[in-house]
Amino acid sequence: MQLPISPSKVAHIIIRARKFDADVPGSGQGRELRAFIANLNEDEQAALTAVMWIGRETFEPEELDEAIATAKAEASAPTEDYLMGIPMLADYLEDGLIALGISLEDAEEDVDRPV
């Protein structure tokens, strides 16, 4: 299955999540990260959640379709609220990309391009 979110968008979220985790409260990093995730479409939000679950080893990489379907079926809170409440979000997203065979370095190179 093709991942319904571009790796560069996931890389952008990883970078923002790392800044958010390391940042001083009130600097706007959380607001920017929340807005970016909120502006993704439903398929992208479900895929982002699935990548995080794969990175957290809740699902295996070959269960991507099932993870995406589960994310859509179980979404009871806004995705940005759910994901921003996950400690180590950036690490889980990075591990999820790696598990799916997607190079974070290649994805990060695309971050400077418009998403």
Rank of each mutant, 00 (worst) to 15 (best):
A77R: 12
D95A: 07
P78Q: 06
I98R: 15
I13S: 06
L33Y: 07
G28F: 13
P114S: 12
A67Q: 00
L93M: 08
G101W: 13
P4C: 08
L100V: 01
E66I: 00
P78F: 09
E105F: 15
I54Y: 00
F36H: 10
K19F: 14
A107H: 11
L3Y: 12
A17V: 00
I54G: 03
L97W: 00
I37D: 03
E66H: 08
V111M: 01
I54M: 01
S6D: 04
A11I: 00
E105W: 15
D91T: 12
P25L: 11
Y92D: 01
A38D: 12
E63H: 03
I68L: 05
K19S: 12
V111I: 14
Q45S: 10
A73K: 10
V111H: 04
I5V: 09
R16V: 15
M1A: 10
A47D: 07
L64K: 04
R113G: 15
Y82N: 05
A99H: 08
A73L: 11
A73V: 09
R31Y: 14
H12I: 07
W53F: 10
E94V: 08
L89Q: 02
T79D: 00
S6P: 11
E42C: 10
A22S: 09
A71D: 00
P114I: 13
R113Y: 14
E57A: 08
Y82M: 09
R34A: 14
